[in-house]
Nucleic acid binder design. Structure first.
Lengths: 182, 182
DNA sequence: GCCTCATGTCAACACTTGTTGACAAATGTT
DNA sequence: AACATTTGTCAACAAGTGTTGACATGAGGC
């Protein structure tokens, strides 16, 4: 790993944390660079600017090849992905990165299109049964709602989404979302 | 209504829109004042500053006396409130105001405490049955998740939360949330 | 050694932000 | 009419933002 690649990846990691914690507009380039132990000007050099850095971070966040692997059940894989127990802290999870920037005046649109291109549409294509659009939308609503309720609103009584999906509570809701008919 | 009260309320209304659309840190005082047709400096005069303006806006957003009225069923009232069809646009709804600012580094904490003081705790106190905390948390998750999925992520297939609650889809999920046992 | 290119450092830039204080205009009171 | 109080206007401020260009430092090839 060359020197430049090292600083590039340090910047990318730091950026993902800041963008996921504060959102695009509230994240400061100087703070991102500082956390990466690097000079601010290098962001423009390696990514062309703040927008380029965000794009790179977003692309990395949404790169989930196992979601497209025919060997995996798409919904179960998605559940594991969205409730990833390996992420040390929800503040830096992909779920939050998406939610927090989905309606930013600057990057909102590209977040949504990337979300559809990389996750929602592929997921929909692999689902079976009837009312696919509705069931998928409800599934997303449950995942997103549980995440926000627990981590952003900090409502007690919400199942810990990190403790795999074996929480009966969350599974109960997801089942209700996916079993919708009529 | 005196002149000062008029500009004060114009500022408050404009602020609620901006805070609900862009969030606290992304809302600009000059833009708020401009939309209200008023000079920026008057914000400091009437509200003491940006924080005071936000507090006033938040207080107004969370003032829902009918939620505490013993004559109303708390959950049904909450459903109508959260899926208020009278609000012209979701961008300016109370739900969004809360979600968008719940983890802002500056105002996040006061948003959450106000949310609990004014809404969640009173609601919890009036609920019956078992597993109150869990059922309430899931109810909130469904409301919040549906709102974000539809309006922020713009996922097609999500029931229009504005079309009252008679959407079978959303009602299906809410029932699942509230009927949770064990 | 000398040159070249990659990489990093630093200072400045134009701009926006929230806030403040001096001043003007309007309104009400005696 | 003359004064006092309220209400509004304007310009400036210090601080923070993303971005840029000039310069310094480093490593590898001839």
């Amino acid at each position: 790993m060359s020197k430049s690649e090292h600083t590039r990846s340090a910047l990318l990691q730091s950026a993902t944390r800041q963008f996921g914690e504060f959102g695009y507009s509230n994240a400061s380039l100087r703070q991102i660079a500082g956390q990466a132990g690097v000079d601010v000007a290098l962001i423009s050099r390696y990514f062309g600017g703040k927008l380029g850095l965000f794009d790179a971070s977003l692309k990395e966040c949404l790169n989930w090849p196992e979601l497209l692997d025919p060997a995996n059940d798409p919904i179960e894989t998605a559940i594991e992905k969205f409730t990833d127990p390996t992420s040390e802290d929800h503040k830096f999870s992909t779920t939050r990165m998406i939610i927090l920037n989905a309606d930013d005046p600057i990057v909102g649109e590209r977040v949504r299109t990337a979300l559809f291109d990389k996750l929602i549409n592929p997921l929909e294509a692999r689902m079976g049964g009837t009312h696919i659009k509705e069931r998928l939308a409800m599934f997303i609503a449950v995942i997103v709602g549980a995440s926000i309720t627990r981590y952003s609103l900090q409502v007690p009584g919400m199942a810990d989404a990190d403790a795999k999906i074996h929480s009966r509570q969350l599974r109960h809701l997801i089942d209700a979302a996916l079993s919708f008919k009529c």
